[in-house]
Amino acid sequence: MEKANVKLLTEDGRRIDGRGLNELRKFRVEAGVLKNADGSAYIELGRNKIMVAVYGPKEVHPRHEALPDRMLLRCRYSMLPFSVADERKSPSPTRREVEISKVIREALEPAIFLEEYPRTSTDVFIEVIEADGSTRVASITAAAVALADAGIPMKDLVVGVSIGKIEGRLAIDLSGIEDQRGEGDMPIALMPRLNEITLLQADGSFSRDEIAQALQMVREAAIKLYEEQRRALKDRYSKLPVEVEIT
């Protein structure tokens, strides 16, 4: 890999894949794509392909984990061994996956009326089939649709968008290579209607002004994904179900 030779941004402000700085990759969301799950969704964001299944609300197993005052939400974010560009990923959960599962759960919880379903659990299973950067935020976008598809009452949908720094400029929706070689990555999830941030992480180096600008840029991009989420849910209940094509 020749690292230094790859320019992430051309002089006229185009990225490796031809996008502008505030441009999302091509995306598509589908709701209700699995038969067995109570709710499900599929998202493509650039080359990312992610499947989400929701089971619940249901009885808690093991029982002692049940919460007396609210629903127990559990999340498992997992990458299939062949989903990564590098060598095969071991199928057992990595520390990265453990942390991401936690922050995804905490990104979804603010949107759910958990207290309406005490002593129950809902499981969210996220499987990354193909990964190309920003998988955790794309997972959140799909998981929110899957939860809605399961009929779980929510205050708002949750949309995830990543922003990062390449060649010193803020750029929306980092691809795998931009994440690896850029100067910083800031995954954000928000409830667009309520304008509340439910996930915020960062590494790299950002000034205060950059963070303020990033929050604004992410919000604008999130609105576009929000529309696609709603379209997917509307189509799901106005059309006959279709088999999702993983192409």
Binding site: K102, V103, E106, E109, P110, L114, M186, L190, M191, L194, N195, E196, I197, T198, L199, L200, Q201, A202, D203, G204, S205, F206, S207, R208, I211, A212, L215, Q216, R219
Partner: peptide
Amino acid sequence: TKSGNVCAIQKGGRGSFTPEEILKALDTAQ
């Protein structure tokens, strides 16, 4: 960092923040 830049952020917990709250907290942190 020493220069006042942000080198990592982590939100946790079941609640959410408005963008204004995030920036206000950041000002205090700096």
